[in-house]
Amino acid sequence: MARYGMLLDTGKCVGCYACRVACQMQNELPPGESYIKFYENETGVFPNVNHEIVPVQCQHCEDAPCVSVCPTTASYIREDGIVMVDHFKCIGCKYCMEACPYDAREIHHATGTIDKCVFCQSLVEQGEDPACVTTCIADARVFGDLDDPNSHINQVIAEQNAQHIAGDLTKSNFYYVR
């Protein structure tokens, strides 16, 4: 069984928001609802400056606080590592939104249930990459099987010394090169 993960290289990311809109189209979200949030770091003093955009979405944690706090077991982890929300079980209590250290969850505009990035599982099941990966104009995102030692994502993690954004906090399956 695969264990899916994603990597994002902020050295390549230009903060163009293509991933946000591609994700919204794929998941049919209204303009104000986004599964990806963007954080900005400006450092230094003119003219010695640096700047980084850090897109953050569900980190698909193995030790997922959203899953452990969910009173109805609506939030769950699939065998392939993708963290999901069962909309039929979700009562919209928002405990998971509070528990998620990455602020990665949104309230669905029509149902009031909780939504978030699910690594475009319907595309992944067809052998495609998630929409944010496919559309990325800077090749900043890599998606793949973390259990396969030969996968491209594992190669990039090793070569670029990719790290989790919050260390071992939640045993996430999302890696950043920064």
């Binding site: 163009c16 928001y17 293509a18 946000r20 809109v21 591609a22 919204q24 189209m25 794929q26 049919e28 929409a131 496919t134 559309t135 990325c136 104009i137």
Partner: peptide
């Protein structure tokens, strides 16, 4: 319309697409 995707064979998209294109 549901969604659009950048063409793999067009030299300007190479499979990708910017936010403007989607929007």
């Amino acid at each position: 319309l549901w969604k659009i995707k950048g063409s793999n064979i067009h030299p300007n998209s190479l499979g990708t697409l910017c936010a403007r294109g989607h929007g």
